[in-house]
Amino acid sequence: MRLTILGGDGGWPRPGGACSGYLVEHEGYSVLLDPGPGTFPRLTTLLPAAALDAVLVSHGHPDHVLDLNPLLRARAFADPGPPPLPVHAPEAALAPVLALDRAGVLDQAVYVRELLPGREVTLGPVTVRAAELPHTWLNLGLRISAAGATLVYTGDSGPSPALHELARNADVLLAEASHVDEVPPAMAGLLSTAGQRGDDAREAGVGRLVLTHLLPGEDASEARDRAAARFAGPVDVARPGLVVEVGAGRPQ
């Protein structure tokens, strides 16, 4: 299973950057995680909009969903148009972005499916299990498995034992780390630091940690160092174009 980072900025894109967006591919099947702003143009350098098989959305904040609109427009206005795109998301997460166009424009381009905590969904050769993790909106962490390889994505989340259970022994943990050292008091328990993600990776026994969603102004090198001080495995920071082979073998 292959993970390609389309964007990993938190909140809003840095100059030349993109917010959360991650392409997962296995056996010719492609799933987009969180179409955040700036990710659609990067996606289409890798595959046509019509070739995407499914979308998974962790939660409805705009930095995780806004580029669903151009993705669906590209499919809706194609001639001939591809089949409706299955988009799996928590209840009500998509309503604002789907309302950006006049009624009916995108109806034939999208097939919305509610994503529920604790339920397992099969998407082609991939299985997905969701778990609710703490954030300001309903946020679902996602455990994505195929052929013995496992990727876990946090969405945006404060620290939680539920994450340790979801990520247990995963090959790769793709984890929000909005801040390097300290989460502001107003968001305490609802977002995480890079050091906390190092603790999460160690506790869950994952093979590799990829930090993402750093807010503009936070230093990627410092974030990596904080996580690496608390987790002995490989640590990366998400950047557009980074490719991770999930299940390619753990470091010895």
Rank of each mutant, 00 (worst) to 15 (best):
R14D: 01
A204T: 03
A170P: 03
L242F: 05
R75C: 10
L138A: 05
V31N: 05
D219L: 09
D181K: 00
A248G: 15
P70A: 09
P86Q: 09
G28L: 08
P159G: 11
D67F: 13
V243I: 11
P185Y: 02
D199Y: 07
P83K: 00
A49S: 14
E218K: 04
G10Y: 06
G10F: 05
G205R: 04
V55S: 03
E182T: 14
L214K: 02
A186H: 08
G8P: 10
G189Q: 04
A76P: 12
G198R: 03
P35D: 01
T39I: 05
G148K: 02
A109Q: 05
G141M: 08
R119A: 15
A147M: 03
I5E: 12
G28I: 08
L6G: 11
S160R: 02
E120Q: 12
A131Y: 01
D34N: 15
V126M: 15
L151S: 05
R197M: 15
R102L: 14
A54Q: 07
A186S: 11
A50H: 10
L6M: 13
A54T: 06
V237I: 07
P251C: 09
Q252D: 09
V128K: 11
A50Q: 12
P117V: 11
P62C: 03
L142Q: 14
A93V: 07
P125F: 14
D9H: 05
D236A: 11
P159T: 14
L94K: 07
G189M: 04
A49Y: 14
L100S: 10
R113H: 15
A177D: 09
A170Y: 03
G247T: 08
L33N: 06
H213Y: 01
D101W: 08
L33R: 07
H179W: 15
D9Y: 05
L43W: 14
A95C: 02
L3Q: 05
F231C: 03
A238E: 10
A76N: 09
W12Y: 14
P216F: 07
A201E: 00
A92Q: 11
A92W: 13
G28D: 12
G38P: 04
D67Y: 12
L23H: 09
V172F: 00
P240T: 03
P37T: 04
N139S: 15
P37V: 06
L52C: 12
L85T: 06
L3P: 05
D225M: 03
L52F: 11
R239I: 06
V172R: 00
A227D: 07
V243G: 00
P86R: 13
A51D: 15
S145E: 15
G141R: 03
V55N: 06
S160T: 13
Y29D: 02
V237G: 02
V121I: 01
G81V: 00
H88T: 00
V112W: 00
D107F: 00
A188P: 01
D219V: 14
P134H: 02
A146P: 02
R202T: 14
E91W: 04
H64I: 02
A227W: 08
P80A: 01
D171N: 04
W12H: 15
E91N: 00
E132I: 00
A92T: 11
P90D: 06
P234Y: 04
A188G: 11
W12S: 13
L6P: 10
T122Q: 12
R102T: 12
S58R: 06
R208K: 13
N139V: 05
S192K: 01
A109G: 06
G60V: 05
G148E: 00
R250M: 05
